[in-house]
Simulated scan of single mutants.
Amino acid sequence: MAKKLAIIASKGTLDGAYPPFLLASTAAALGFEAKIFFTFYGLQLLKNDLSLKVSPLGNPAMPMPVPVPSIVQIIPGLEAFATWMMQRKLKKKGVASVAELREICLESGVELIACQMTVDLFDFKNSDFIDGISHGGAATFLEFASEADITLYI
């Protein structure tokens, strides 16, 4: 019987996208049955249009080339700069893109579940999302998570 990994993805940022996809794709490669439940802002990770950003605001651990005092972080354009900087670093280090990791998950049999309540709450349409995902509620995911060997909230 395969081990099971259950992940709840609630963040819709560029830096928040990597942990669930990396962990799930690695688990699948190791023979785990893996499912990711995308809820609230995490639904952004399942959309056709991946326009993910990084915000240095409220993220004191973000490594910046120079220390940035909190008050400076509200300057217009800093979020765009931080996003560009992160994308550049990821590319330079040869890290797969979020879209590539998402595709690897699908190809590896990781089930990507859109929280139906959140889909309804934010008035999303099925056409907003990539093909190959499923929809379900908290009860559906919790049934799997209650049997999982590892459950993570990201």
Rank of each mutant, 00 (worst) to 15 (best):
residue 42 G to L: 04
residue 42 G to W: 03
residue 42 G to M: 04
residue 43 L to N: 05
residue 44 Q to E: 14
residue 46 L to W: 01
residue 48 N to L: 11
residue 50 L to Q: 15
residue 50 L to W: 06
residue 51 S to C: 07
residue 51 S to V: 08
residue 52 L to S: 01
residue 52 L to W: 01
residue 53 K to Q: 12
residue 55 S to Y: 02
residue 55 S to D: 14
residue 59 N to H: 10
residue 61 A to L: 12
residue 62 M to Q: 04
residue 66 V to K: 11
residue 66 V to T: 08
residue 67 P to V: 04
residue 67 P to K: 08
residue 67 P to Q: 08
residue 68 V to Q: 08
residue 68 V to N: 01
residue 69 P to H: 10
residue 69 P to C: 05
residue 69 P to Y: 07
residue 70 S to C: 07
residue 71 I to P: 05
residue 73 Q to R: 15
residue 74 I to P: 02
residue 75 I to M: 13
residue 75 I to A: 09
residue 75 I to C: 06
residue 76 P to D: 01
residue 77 G to W: 00
residue 77 G to T: 02
residue 77 G to R: 00
residue 77 G to H: 02
residue 78 L to Y: 00
residue 79 E to W: 00
residue 79 E to M: 12
residue 79 E to F: 00
residue 80 A to S: 12
residue 80 A to F: 01
residue 80 A to N: 12
residue 82 A to C: 10
residue 82 A to F: 01
residue 84 W to A: 14
residue 85 M to S: 09
residue 86 M to C: 06
residue 87 Q to K: 15
residue 88 R to T: 15
residue 88 R to N: 14
residue 88 R to I: 04
residue 88 R to K: 15
residue 89 K to C: 05
residue 91 K to V: 06
residue 91 K to N: 07
residue 92 K to N: 12
residue 92 K to Y: 11
residue 92 K to Q: 14
residue 93 K to G: 05
residue 94 G to V: 12
residue 94 G to P: 05
residue 95 V to L: 11
residue 96 A to D: 12
residue 96 A to T: 08
residue 96 A to Y: 12
residue 96 A to K: 15
residue 97 S to I: 05
residue 97 S to M: 10
residue 97 S to G: 08
residue 98 V to A: 12
residue 98 V to Y: 06
residue 98 V to S: 11
residue 100 E to P: 06
residue 102 R to C: 08
residue 103 E to T: 15
residue 105 C to F: 05
residue 107 E to T: 14
residue 107 E to W: 02
residue 108 S to P: 06
residue 108 S to F: 06
residue 109 G to E: 11
residue 111 E to P: 01
residue 111 E to Q: 13
residue 114 A to C: 11
residue 114 A to P: 05
residue 114 A to W: 03
residue 115 C to D: 04
residue 116 Q to R: 12
residue 117 M to C: 05
residue 118 T to A: 15
residue 119 V to N: 10
residue 119 V to L: 13
residue 119 V to T: 13
residue 120 D to I: 03
residue 120 D to L: 09
residue 121 L to G: 06
residue 121 L to A: 15
residue 123 D to Q: 15
residue 124 F to A: 03
residue 125 K to N: 08
residue 126 N to E: 12
residue 127 S to W: 05
residue 128 D to R: 03
residue 129 F to M: 07
residue 130 I to M: 06
residue 130 I to D: 00
residue 133 I to A: 03
residue 133 I to K: 02
residue 134 S to T: 12
residue 135 H to C: 01
residue 136 G to M: 04
residue 138 A to K: 01
residue 138 A to F: 07
residue 138 A to H: 01
residue 140 T to F: 10
residue 141 F to D: 00
residue 141 F to V: 00
residue 143 E to H: 14
residue 143 E to F: 07
residue 145 A to I: 09
residue 146 S to D: 10
residue 147 E to G: 07
residue 148 A to Q: 06
residue 148 A to Y: 03
residue 148 A to C: 11
